Amino acid sequence: MLGADEPDHRGRTGLHLTGLGLDRNPGVIVDEVELLAAGWHVLRRTRFRERDAVGSWIAKVAETYDRGNGATILLYDPDRRTVLLTRQFRYPVYVNDHPDGMLLETAAGLLDDDDPETAIRREAVEETGHEIADLEHVFDVYMSPGSVTERIHFYAARYSPETARHAGGGLADEGEHIDVIELGFDDALAQIGTGIVDAKTIMLLQWAALRGPFASAKPDATRQTR
């Protein structure tokens, strides 16, 4: 099968072995991994046993979608109190009741073979045209842990006219058509749940308001809660 004994179109083999031999959790034993599909991403069905509270082993099945890990970044200008987002068509949301499939998002992309910092610098300049200097790592998050293996690395960085290298828009040879949208930070916050419905973007905007560059007051780390 492609992706198992025969290389898939990305040259991968052994995709049916992922998870076998995991022993970090003594309450879980992986018995079998079945490769269901190996297109650009990988779908697996895994049979495993999980030990319950009384010590009995319960047989379970999980289907996991593996698209690799990714990174995203909130670009912000604290002096003008603005953020730089992207807008592009997303077919999965279009087919699931979004009016036109056009999402406002923070710049993001898959890591591919890069480390997270290298990947997000690459995506920022490709999508927004801005070459970032200092990066702030915010957190790493599993976005849909019930079925998707992806972990996203979240970052934030300043942008300004001095960081602009080109107009952005993505890679035309990969079929990307991305609009670069600058919004006032307060306007972006007000659009959460209406104009902005992308999870990673909402998380970074809320972080910026609560703990990041637009927080009105930083929490006092020395204050004791009662």
Rank of each mutant, 00 (worst) to 15 (best):
I152G: 02
F154V: 08
G109Y: 08
D186Q: 14
Y142K: 14
Y159I: 02
L35A: 07
L183S: 05
G109M: 07
D97F: 04
D52C: 04
G193P: 13
Q206N: 14
D8A: 02
I58C: 11
A107L: 04
D100G: 05
T82S: 12
L36P: 00
A172T: 12
T72L: 07
L85I: 01
A190R: 14
A124E: 02
G3S: 05
V93P: 00
W207F: 07
A53N: 08
L15E: 04
R90V: 15
D112Y: 10
E50T: 09
V42H: 02
D112P: 01
D31I: 01
L43H: 11
L36H: 01
E123K: 06
A133Y: 09
T86I: 15
E50P: 01
E34G: 07
T46M: 13
R165V: 14
R151G: 00
N69I: 02
H41M: 04
D114T: 00
F214V: 06
T64D: 03
A172Q: 11
L17W: 04
T106W: 00
E50M: 10
D114N: 09
I73T: 11
A38K: 00
L22H: 10
P99D: 01
L36N: 04
Y91R: 15
G11W: 05
D173L: 12
V125G: 00
R24Y: 10
N69Q: 04
T13R: 09
R45S: 11
V180Q: 06
A208I: 07
R211Y: 12
A37L: 08
A62I: 11
M102V: 08
L135R: 08
T72H: 05
A53E: 15
L15P: 03
A209K: 13
A157C: 08
L85A: 07
D186V: 06
I196P: 00
V148P: 01
I29H: 12
D173S: 12
A37N: 13
L104C: 05
L22C: 09
D113K: 14
T225E: 10
I120Q: 00
A164W: 01
T128P: 04
T86G: 07
A164P: 00
G39Q: 10
R158G: 11
R49V: 00
A167H: 10
A217Q: 15
R158Y: 01
G14S: 08
A167W: 00
G193F: 07
R44Y: 02
